[in-house]
Structure formats: C-alpha cells, structure tokens
C-alpha cells in the first residue's frame, strides 16, 4: 500500500461530472466507477447508501455564502475503502439530501465531496480541510468549480488547494 502521508487527496482520475436524477442513481454511478478504479471495496455502495439514509451528510452552504449551492459529504466506514481521497462530484442536476445537523430538513445539493478515508486518525482531518477550503476560497473560483462541465476544471481548482 502506498504511503498515505504522501498520497495526494485529489486524484485526476477520481473526479466526476454526473447527470443522475436521484441520490440512488448518482451513488450507483459513482460507486461503480470507484470500484473499477479499485478505490473502494464491493460492499461500499450498500454501506454508503445505508449510512446516508440513517446519518445524512447534506451541508447548507447558504450560511457560508448564499450564492453557493449546497454540498454533501457522503462517506462510510474505512473498512469499505482502499484509500484516503476526496472524490469531487459535480451534479448537473441538483439532487435532494437531508441536512447533516438537522436530518428532518431537506434541500437540493449541487456538488459532492465524497470522502474516502481508511485512516481517520491520520494527519489533518479531511472534512476540516474541505470546509476550510470552501469558507476561504475565492468566490469566482468556487463559482467555476460548482459549474464545472469537465473534470479538468475541477482538478485545476482543487489540486493546488489539497495536494
């Protein structure tokens, strides 16, 4: 296994622009691609879905900036993944998620930062790094990220911030 401390969090081959119409469709699509890339184990999808249902991960970005779309940070236990990565997923069609901090509330989400983490104790917290980026990044740059039509645009914006 590669040395986790030197492996970049953002991988050009592990980011997606998807067109799914529901959470199920998007999770299925992304999980299939992650499995082909050997980034996750076969049980990943089932556990991701179950965890999102019981402990949702939507985050209301209007508290950071009302112009930003809401995001979600779907993830599951380390035993179902093979690496430590952030998987950015631009949703061409916003899909509904429940709010992590008040699960009764639902809202549309336009961008996912899926977290694959097989080493929760290691290094700086991945979720903290994502939120620090979103709360501090240049607004125009974030607008380009949230509207990205291709993965190259996503990579060019996120790689300098995370790798």
């Amino acid at each position: 296994m590669a040395d986790e401390t030197t492996t970049p969090l953002i991988d050009k081959n592990l980011m997606f622009v998807v067109d799914g119409r529901s959470q199920d469709e998007v999770f299925q699509d992304v999980a299939d691609r992650l499995l082909k890339a050997d980034a996750v184990k076969p049980d990943f999808l089932k556990n991701l879905e179950e965890r999102e249902k019981n402990y949702p991960t939507g985050m209301d970005m209007s508290v950071v900036n009302k112009d930003y779309p809401n995001i979600a940070i779907p993830h599951t236990e380390g035993q179902f993944v093979n690496t430590r990565k952030i998987i950015p997923v631009r949703l061409k069609q916003p899909i509904e998620f429940a709010n992590m901090i008040s699960p009764d509330q639902h809202f549309p989400v336009g961008f996912l930062f899926m977290i694959l983490n097989n080493d929760p104790e290691g290094q700086a917290n991945v979720l903290a790094q994502i939120m620090d980026f979103l709360t501090n990044a240049d607004k125009d740059q974030l607008a380009r990220l949230f509207n990205a039509e291709d993965t190259q645009t996503i990579f060019d914006i996120l790689a300098p911030a995370f790798n």
Partner: peptide, 16 residues
Amino acid sequence: ACGAGVNSSHQIASAI
C-alpha cells in the same frame, strides 16, 4: 459520535 465514526466525530472531538 457520527454515522461512520471516521470524519465528523474526529473533527468535533479535536475542535472541542
């Protein structure tokens, strides 16, 4: 505590 015990709970524990 959080759903997966991987990300959120660790961040909360260290921030507090």
